[in-house]
Amino acid sequence: MNIFRLAGDMTHLFSVLVLLLKIHTIKSCAGISLKTQELYALVFTTRYLDIFTDFISLYNTVMKLIFLGSSFSIVWYIRRHKIVRRSYDKDQDTFRHYFLVIPCLVLAVFINHKFTFKEVMWTFSLYLEAVAILPQLVLLQRTRNIDNLTGQYVFLLGAYRALYILNWIYRHFTEPHYVHWITWIAGVVQTLLYADFFYYYFQSWKNNEKLQLPA
């Protein structure tokens, strides 16, 4: 464990807790894409298939349970909670899951480290995580207004993966044979997808104005 990875995990944890707390306290999911949340639940499910078979550390297991629990809770709130679901804007959140799931699945079948079910699922989860934010970014551009909690949520999500890239660089130099180019590429693609959001987020923060994404 290095400081970059710990900071990345804490940022990631903080982002899902911010979102869960927001939905739980104001009982609203305005501006939140259910599609992205469902994709994240799928990412964690396919990423953590080994949660009960390979024990790595208490930290690792606890964090996996928190990520699984929070992502499914958020999906439950938006789908089932009698008050929250009313604020879900299904007419705007129309990004089709399978446009992202199918290509990631096909890619994982052809490009992976080892052709086993768990390894293909793990690779699929990496590819899917890289693009899972797209429905959320599309929704933000459509609704054009970003309440700052949602803005912070997306910012933290992007920051976590950027910190992971630093972690991979650090491990590459400190650990022999630590080369996993699939993880690297998926992580860099994911962070680049946030780049334009980061730009507008930083501009709005610098000019102290409301965050507006160009249409």
Partner: peptide
């Protein structure tokens, strides 16, 4: 860690 080093990451 099983399946290579990266499996110890979240």
């Amino acid at each position: 860690a099983p399946g290579g080093v990266h499996k110890d990451e979240l």
